[in-house]
Simulated assay, not measured.
Amino acid sequence: MSRLTVEHAGLSFSRRGHSQVILNNLNLDIEKGASVVVLGPSGCGKSSLLNVLAGFQPLDHGRVQLDGRTLEGPGGERGVVFQDDALLPWLDALDNVAIGLRLRGLGKAERHARARQVLELVGLANHAHHRVTELSGGQRQRLGLARALAVDPEFLLLDEPFGALDALTRERMQVLLLDVWKRTGKGLFLITHSVDEALFLATDLIVLDGPPARIAGRYEVPFARRYVAGESVRSIKSDPAFGELRQELLDHFLQEAAEHAL
């Protein structure tokens, strides 16, 4: 089973002549087939951690490894889905998905065949020749997910991908993500500040406080696996166990906010 790890991660940024520690000796691992969700307030270091795992942000010290091999920079084993979909508006949906395959040297017929397969997986098969501007917010996020999947990464890294969507579209995208996870077996790493989203999507839920980022809690959560096993969303979210853990997490963040306000 493949494992993506960050070991003893240290990262600081300088702002207005002052250095702020963002990550301080942080350790984390993600197994292929797991859904690791990091939950924390804005500014705690979630996005910095994702950028480190993606290879976009070099560490001051520490390392990122895949099965013991140190990774330097971005790579095809990690696909990234952004909150602002980062799509290319001058290309249609098919070519947005296929562009990564083009960079890998695949011929047009092969990359378009693969792109159509992935568009089918995310429910956009009938929108292959739509421009980005013709797609809704939810459709653009589906397209961003398809683009990340096209190169067949072992791990998907998702940076608050549904934060800008309305509540109904957001839940539909959460369900789609779990359906894709079930069908592909990818390792997921998703960051969010939504407690409900974290509980529903995670097999392994990490509560992050900071900065500097520190793991304040870690939970094995059953709800994502219950969904892919066939239980309905409404049944899961109305389960008292879901509500109790939700309240525990909310209480934690309310307490943290009150302590920081002192």
Rank of each mutant, 00 (worst) to 15 (best):
G45Y: 07
A167N: 07
N51Q: 10
A148I: 03
F223C: 10
G79V: 14
L4M: 05
E31N: 09
D60M: 12
G43P: 06
H193L: 08
L88R: 08
F13G: 02
A167W: 10
Q255K: 05
L91H: 12
A93R: 01
L208E: 00
D84V: 05
E160G: 04
T203N: 06
S136K: 14
L201F: 09
K182A: 13
L178V: 11
R3A: 02
K108H: 09
G40C: 03
D85T: 13
L250D: 00
F223L: 10
S47R: 11
V207A: 00
T133C: 08
D179L: 03
L53E: 01
P153Y: 03
G62T: 15
P222L: 04
V175K: 13
L254M: 07
A198E: 05
V64G: 09
S12A: 13
P74C: 09
L88Q: 11
H127G: 09
R142D: 11
L50M: 14
L119H: 00
D95L: 04
L201I: 11
P212K: 00
V228R: 01
E220L: 07
A146D: 02
A34V: 02
P240G: 05
L205H: 02
L158H: 05
H18K: 12
R114F: 10
L4E: 01
S136E: 12
P153W: 03
G163N: 06
L59K: 10
L205D: 00
L50S: 07
P212L: 01
L101K: 11
V195C: 07
C44I: 07
E77H: 14
A34C: 11
R183G: 05
W90N: 06
T70G: 02
L188E: 05
L26I: 14
Q57T: 12
F223G: 08
A258T: 03
N27K: 09
F253R: 02
A128C: 04
T70W: 04
G217S: 07
R214A: 04
R15V: 14
L121C: 03
L59V: 12
A54W: 08
F253A: 01
K32C: 09
D204A: 00
H252N: 01
G185F: 07
H260G: 00
Q83E: 13
K108N: 07
G123F: 01
G243N: 06
F189L: 15
W90Q: 07
E231P: 02
G75R: 13
V195M: 08
A229D: 15
S47C: 12
A148G: 12
E134Q: 15
L254Y: 06
E31D: 06
P41D: 04
R225Y: 01
N24E: 14
K237S: 04
P212Q: 00
Q83D: 13
V97W: 02
D159M: 07
D85A: 15
N126D: 15
H18N: 03
H8K: 15
L176R: 11
D239A: 13
W181D: 05
L262P: 02
R172L: 14
N126G: 15
